[in-house]
Design a protein around this nucleic acid. Structure first.
Lengths: 196, 196, 196, 196
DNA sequence: CATGAATGAGACTTCATTCAT
DNA sequence: TATGAATGAAGTCTCATTCAT
């Protein structure tokens, strides 16, 4: 029957939602399984039917939320493209800036997923989401048009994303050594240099 | 004969050494205070005479080891300079490469200090070590010679270090998405671009 | 078969019994949670399922035992009333004497509950036990028959009980400044004075 | 030499003062030896040169403060006697009321010494202070004038003090079951009854 | 007498995980 | 599948007391 399967999915989601709320509110280490099942309204044992342990839940939440944000950014980029012609540099910077600004407004979320939101999401041939894959391919193609090999192109994209991620986590979460507004001009200037 | 003050310092060091060994062997979370004091050969209460808690010890170890490594790299650079003339680009790449190769050979140490070995160690005006400060000033001066302001120069240095740190942690600790040998050429190529 | 709810109550009681035995044998401060759970035959965590901490257990035991003793005294009074006619003074003194003699024979118990077995158990309008309430009301009524207001009557009863409690704790537990047999005549003489 | 002996007494006093302040501020259980020696400005080991342990200190402080308060009350009584003729009942009630009001204004002190400020201070033949002994003798004599034996007189005094102590500790420290102002009239009324 | 670093037993509590129902 | 009572190992930290200096 369909209902049973749907109920299961619902419980899974309730646990993920409860976990997400608690993790960003109290931190991962300060959240215990009891908190999660209480908030989700299920019994303690039920948790272990759906997740191996707390860190399994963390990983699944992280993956879920990361994909959500990236898809949002790509969606916005698509919208913008319809309104004005954008060259490659403009597109990359728009995409990056969208992510950066998003996390600036969602620090709690950034704190949670930073450990797992690695640039790897955008790399390799193992990207799970087709839309995402298409977007990455488009970016990569642009690098290749400049004479890079496929691998060089992929690596360049990865390095840029890693750089932005590292610098912006510092800036947003700790405002050290520079706040986001302080570092942005130099950061974007350097990205442009890399895109030449 | 040892003075009382020397004995105290010795105990401190013994605890830090014991902690370091255990942290890199078993991981921070799997190391308990009992392990540390047993290995250091002191009583449990003694630990709390010197450190607030386990994480205080972690932080002090991290700082200690980070400074040690950076000082090593600077020392090697100094040696090299005596042997051959080096321009700015060469010096920066030598310094970076020394750190990268060092951590490649000391993965456990990298795992431990990565969280705290931030690029910040090299930034700002609050650098604690005079030798380190001098070296950073020299690097910064080179960027300023290219027409950047002091702040731009400092930020550029910070961003490069952050980029290298992020990429190399992935490469060394997880070999994902690229191993160190795979990513190095592209990484160094991009650094050179940024130094132009 | 036992129901789950009955099993829970049983565990609670086992913990209270174990705690009571240990507290009167070794004292509260010298009894540790480990002792209690070991004696009760449950796991340590189980203790915290039923009680907030050691002092929560102490309080619950105290209340439980106090009510038990008072109910005993009232029961005996009831029995006695059937055998002979008793005026108010006689009843009060019988009730008091029962408690005093009981505790003389149960010094350990007195030591445990003295801190919490306050005269308050017999006062105010918040008495939890209906039988107890009825008995108190009867006593109070007698004072009111002598022309006191309700509050005066309640306060007089409270003061007598407080006086007896204080003097007898000294006498029974420390035999200082007077032993129970030494002080009793004067104490009861003074009570009679107060009842006039 | 005199100085050495005086220095010792000074240290003793500093420790007692520090202990008293901390005990009434933080409570006995929450005060550790470290707090005391730090506040007194001596080394930890020194504490054990003067006191067996924390509870030894508590007892000595309690005795010291109790005597101080009682002497104050007797002094005030003496003053009052000079101004107006007082009969026995008036004197007893004045003395009691002075103590009660004093503790009402020094709840912290009451909390500390209640456990040890027993009526015993005023009883027996072991009173250490000569002034106190004289005053107690005078009170006792009055009871004997009414036909009581020496022991009855002493016991009556003891019982009254115990009663007042018990009731007023409840009233002042917990305001339960009655506040001081609520219970005072009935309490003093009953004392007068006992003095008849 | 005075010091204070060192001791280490032991206290309390937490919480991931299991398993009988 | 779902439950939640029970588990008990593991963990951190405290603090009275000692003793070499």
């Amino acid at each position: 029957m369909e209902t049973a399967s749907e109920k299961k999915k619902l419980k899974r989601l309730k646990l993920m939602d409860a976990g997400y709320d608690l993790f960003i509110t109290k931190g991962i280490n300060n959240t215990v399984i009891d908190d999660i099942v209480k908030k989700a309204g299920v019994a303690k044992g039920t948790f272990y039917l759906y997740f191996k342990d707390k860190y399994d839940l963390v990983n699944q939440i992280t993956l879920h939320k990361s994909l959500f944000v990236i898809r949002e950014a790509l969606g916005e980029l698509e919208e913008r493209r319809k309104q004005e012609a954008m060259d490659f540099e403009k597109e990359i910077l728009f995409f990056i800036d969208y992510l950066v600004e998003f996390f600036q407004g969602h620090k709690d979320m950034l704190k949670l997923i930073r450990k797992n939101f690695s640039a790897k999401l955008l790399c390799g041939d193992s990207i799970s989401d087709p839309d995402l894959q298409k977007a990455v391919d488009a970016f990569t193609q642009n690098f290749m048009n400049k004479g890079e090999t496929l691998q060089q192109a992929q690596q360049t994209l990865y390095i840029i994303v890693a750089m932005v991620g590292s610098v912006c986590c510092d800036a947003i979460l700790e405002e050290e050594p520079y706040s986001l507004s302080q570092i942005k001009p130099t950061l974007y200037f350097l990205i442009r240099k890399l895109l030449c």
